[in-house]
Computed example of a mutant assay.
Amino acid sequence: MNPATRTSRGGWKSCLLGAATVTALLTSAACSPSGGDGKPTARPGAPGATAVAACAPVDVSIIASAQDQEGDGLHFLLTLTNTSEKPCKVFRYPLVLIADSQRLSTEVKDSTPIPWTAYETIAPGKQTYAALLQRGSMDVLQPETERTITVQLQDTDPGSRKGESIKIDFPGTSYVCEGDFSQITHWMTSADLALHFINTS
């Protein structure tokens, strides 16, 4: 979207305030583990600190929910729940394939958490979210097309894979983009913030 020309101080002020609000939300989401108890966590290496492992597929459940009017099928929210009894970390963003696409959804780079931490720590029973945007030419899902979204968790190194991929149901639409231009946000503890990045794309 091309930026509009600003002709008043008030317009620039509104723009700056909006940017500051998103930055504050990102900082809050990145700096607060998904425990919800408000207690500070021990620094790695500090006395009493316990190493937190990367989430494995066996530790989590993931569902996808459509965010559009019935049949539109462009915006989706992935919700990951830690179903284990220990905290675990999800790194960066999920590696996603839509239906039978052979190309991974690309990262929404603007959704990288501030201060650019590579992971979210998810307490047992808590959730984290990533928003998925379908982009490109739309095709009708044929009966033989697998109506799934394939989600692969990343390990500690960028692009690395943790365990097997997870197949989840493709929700609420009869259409699918070819997949070449779909986008996925980083994991974050606010569903509204995750959706913000694809609603303004």
Rank of each mutant, 00 (worst) to 15 (best):
I122G: 03
I166C: 04
D72P: 00
E85Y: 09
I114V: 12
L17D: 10
L97H: 09
L141R: 12
G18F: 06
Y175C: 02
S201F: 09
Y93M: 06
A56S: 13
F91C: 07
L193P: 02
W187T: 05
T83I: 15
S105V: 05
R135V: 04
D139S: 15
W12Y: 13
L132Y: 06
E70M: 10
G45C: 08
L78I: 01
H75R: 14
E120D: 15
A64F: 02
I63V: 15
I198N: 00
L16W: 11
L153V: 07
R103V: 08
E164M: 12
D157T: 08
G38I: 06
S174A: 15
C31Q: 13
G163S: 13
E144G: 13
T148P: 07
M188T: 07
I168T: 02
Q134E: 12
I122K: 03
T83D: 15
L195K: 04
L133Q: 04
L104W: 08
D155L: 03
S28I: 04
S61V: 09
T117W: 08
R135Y: 06
P33G: 00
L133G: 00
V58D: 15
S101I: 08
S32H: 03
L141D: 00
A66M: 05
A19T: 10
N199T: 05
V58R: 15
P124G: 06
K39W: 08
L16T: 08
E164I: 11
A66H: 00
D72I: 06
V140A: 13
S137Q: 10
H196D: 07
R6D: 08
A46H: 05
T185Q: 00
A49T: 05
W116A: 15
E178D: 14
R43T: 12
K109S: 13
V140F: 12
T173M: 06
S34M: 14
E70I: 10
T23N: 10
Q127V: 09
C55D: 01
E70S: 09
S34D: 11
E120G: 06
D169N: 11
G35V: 05
S28W: 13
F181H: 13
P87A: 12
G45E: 04
P115W: 05
Q69H: 13
P124I: 05
E107S: 14
F170I: 00
D192R: 11
G136Q: 03
A24R: 12
D157E: 13
Q127C: 12
V58P: 01
K13M: 11
L97G: 02
G125F: 01
G136Y: 02
L80W: 01
L17Q: 14
G10E: 15
G179E: 01
R9D: 14
A194F: 09
F197T: 02
F170R: 04
A20K: 10
K167D: 03
I198S: 02
R43P: 01
V176P: 01
I122P: 00
R6V: 10
